[in-house]
Design a protein around this nucleic acid. Structure first.
Lengths: 224, 224
DNA sequence: AGTCATCTGGTTGTTGACAATCTGACAACA
DNA sequence: TGTTGTCAGATTGTCAACAACCAGATGACT
């Protein structure tokens, strides 16, 4: 719950100039954090007063969130935080796997030594988390690992779409506790992805990434 | 009632649709038609007076177009019709190929007889266009064929993304004259895609679709 | 009692005005 | 002559008020 105007981030986030961008970021965080539950409506007036802006930027931010797939808006009724059906979830996982596969295949053909160093470090950090049983940090690093792959692939649209899909996935498993075994298997797959990228074999990288994501899907299904 | 949401693709001029939606459709058409050239700015004031609305809906529509990838907006400077670099174009083709491959693999596992009938009819019509040398119509049917596959695949996000990528591609080859030979090869590939879907073999469908799109990419490159 | 029309409060849709910012040009100056 | 400061115009960013619209409640009528 944000009291009053700012207080959220100490420094006023005015740098981008556009309030819309700020509001977009804030609302996205609220939704991903679960402050606004799936199915709930984004009340423009309430949110605008909460964030200390007028309804204009809130409306524009809502449009952005709709394109991000985080909310659906109904004419004359407003924007609602998306509630994903099981079918939606399954498609989401598969599609994300496909996109990730493409990103990895791109990266395999262009990764610099610096890129590889960065990814290796992430895998190592994740291993440390497993050893010291820090699930929360592992979860964060895991997101970062895949995000970095998408970005480093140089395919900007691909990275953007992957990021959007990732947020939608987080919509349905906000608090995922993978468990020790899952983390171990998962990071093993990360190693395979990394090895495939290092080898420069685009096809192998693609398959490794797809398999990893599909396994993630299966792990999620098993938690139902 | 299922109002709003998405995907009644193309002209969704509902009786009372919001102005934002109308403006979005109009601007999209203008851009795709080339009325507003790549690199050109979308002047909010001019467009709003041109379309007989205020700047609000125009601004919101511009946000939508940005998410569609048709324009890029700069803070305090406005929205500009996107100018695609060669790299952009190459990624676009590859990514679209990947997405199309996924859509086809989905459709292969769920296509109804009615779906197949529709697609067969489209392929036949395209053949007629080739025989009577109607490139313009062939071009339109070609777009429709791939769009229908995406929609019939049942993967709504996938269809949406494919549609967006498709519009971006059209941004860089508004007037493509494929030539007789190209059309013939292209439709032959359509047949192969259709056959793969009919066979129910997801992997084969995926490969056929990917190959078709990659060949399309090559055909485009050859025109440079 | 049940069905339908109407009313009302609240919310979104739209607008025109005002503030902040950028672009380009002109003029002052070293 | 080349650089820099300043200004005017245009354009985007934001706001608060008004209009259109929907959902639910109330009440009349059969």
């Amino acid at each position: 719950m944000q009291s009053g105007a700012d207080s959220s981030n100490g420094t006023t986030l005015r740098r981008h100039g556009s309030l819309t961008a700020t509001v977009h970021t804030q609302l996205e965080a609220m939704i991903l954090r679960g402050d606004i539950a799936p199915g709930e409506r984004l009340n423009e007036q309430f949110l605008s007063s909460q964030l200390g802006v007028s309804r204009g930027p809130v409306r524009e931010a809502a449009r952005l969130l709709e394109q991000d797939g985080l909310v659906t808006s109904v004419a004359n009724q407003g924007a609602f935080v998306r509630q994903l059906s099981l079918e939606d979830a399954l498609e989401l996982y598969d599609l994300r796997a496909t996109i990730a596969g493409y990103a990895c295949s791109c990266l395999a053909t262009r990764a610099t030594e610096s890129d590889l160093t960065e990814l290796r470090a992430l895998v190592q950090k994740m291993q440390d988390c497993i050893d010291s049983d820090e699930e929360e940090t592992y979860f964060r690093l895991n997101l970062l690992f895949h995000d970095r792959i998408a970005v480093l692939s140089g395919a900007s649209r691909t990275a953007r779409i992957y990021s959007a899909l990732d947020k939608q996935v987080r919509l349905l498993r906000r608090r995922v506790l993978r468990g020790d075994e899952s983390m171990r298997f998962s990071n093993e797959e990360h190693r395979e992805i990394l090895a495939a990228i290092e080898s420069g074999d685009a096809g192998r990288a693609r398959e490794a990434a797809e398999k990893h994501h599909i396994n993630g899907k299966r792990r999620w299904i098993n938690t139902l």
